[in-house]
């Protein structure tokens, strides 16, 4: 049965966020999973409402990962990349987030604004889009990354793509709906990125990736890339990365 998750409307979230940002994180009263804000709603039917203990555990686990990465300790260096990867894996593996409920912006608005705004503040500061639901939401984007870049249960290095790709590469893949919404294509691009990074060097990958993604998007409009065999798709993507590298090298020589 589907676990129904709390939803927070945009209007209520804006008000709560204004309050949070105005008074500062130190004035935040914390998350109470038993007494959720009045504005929280659940789907009327289709499953059972999430238990407060589950919500408390959800927050506790995120806080634990954040603390391991420097949250709450100003003297410690923040390891934000590790935080992102660890939370991605954990969210993607969490069965209560495996349903269509996790595709809703208002679900993630609840998590960003009501459940863990302190973590969002630590990770991104006051940028509103990181609290509110959408592809830039602190947790929603990590869940999406985990969901599409999972190599599958039992695979070698099941979650390695989340650790190997740079932030820029992850954004290029998962924040473009035509690519990020298609797990077959998204994963194939991520695998091709890893191969290209080994060949050309991770430090050179940002412009190469942007160039390659542009070609992939154009090509995907006229050719159904995710219907190709795995080998054929990999070959095609490797060629795009090579062309991108050659184009960039040539432009630097002019």
């Amino acid at each position: 049965m589907v676990t129904l998750l709390p939803r927070l409307t945009a209007l209520a979230a804006e008000r709560m966020l204004d309050d949070f940002l105005h008074h500062g994180v130190s004035a935040w009263r914390g998350f109470d999973p038993v007494n959720l804000p009045d504005e929280v709603r659940f789907a009327a039917t289709g499953g059972s409402q999430v238990h407060p203990v589950t919500l408390r555990d959800l927050r506790s686990r995120v806080v634990k990962i954040a603390k391991d990465c420097g949250f709450g300790n100003d003297d410690e260096k923040k390891d934000l990349a590790l935080f992102d990867s660890e939370v991605s894996v954990w969210l993607a593996e969490n069965p209560i987030l495996a349903s269509g409920e996790s595709l809703r912006d208002d679900t993630w608005t609840f998590i960003g604004v009501a459940m863990a705004p302190d973590i969002v503040f630590w990770r991104f500061g006051t940028s509103r889009e990181r609290y509110l639901g959408g592809i830039r939401n602190t947790f929603q984007r990590l869940w999406m990354r985990g969901r599409v870049l999972d190599r599958g249960p039992g695979s070698d290095g099941r979650w390695d793509l989340l650790y190997e790709l740079t932030e820029d590469a992850l954004v290029q893949i998962t924040e473009r709906p035509s690519i990020g919404g298609d797990p077959i294509l998204a994963r194939a691009i991520a695998e091709a990125w890893v191969r290209a990074a080994m060949h050309h060097g991770k430090g050179r990958m940002e412009p190469i990736m942007r160039h390659a993604v542009l070609r992939i998007r154009i090509q995907n409009e006229i050719r159904s890339m995710s219907s190709l065999s795995q080998a054929e798709l990999a070959k095609m993507l490797d060629a795009f990365f090579d062309i991108a590298e050659e184009t960039i090298t040539a432009s630097l020589q002019v």
Binding site: G100, L103, R104, R147, V148, P177, G181, I184, S226
Partner: peptide, 14 residues
Amino acid sequence: GTGPGRLPRLIVYH
């Protein structure tokens, strides 16, 4: 595909 928005958030069946 499914999810809010004009382009599907996630392809769930292929």
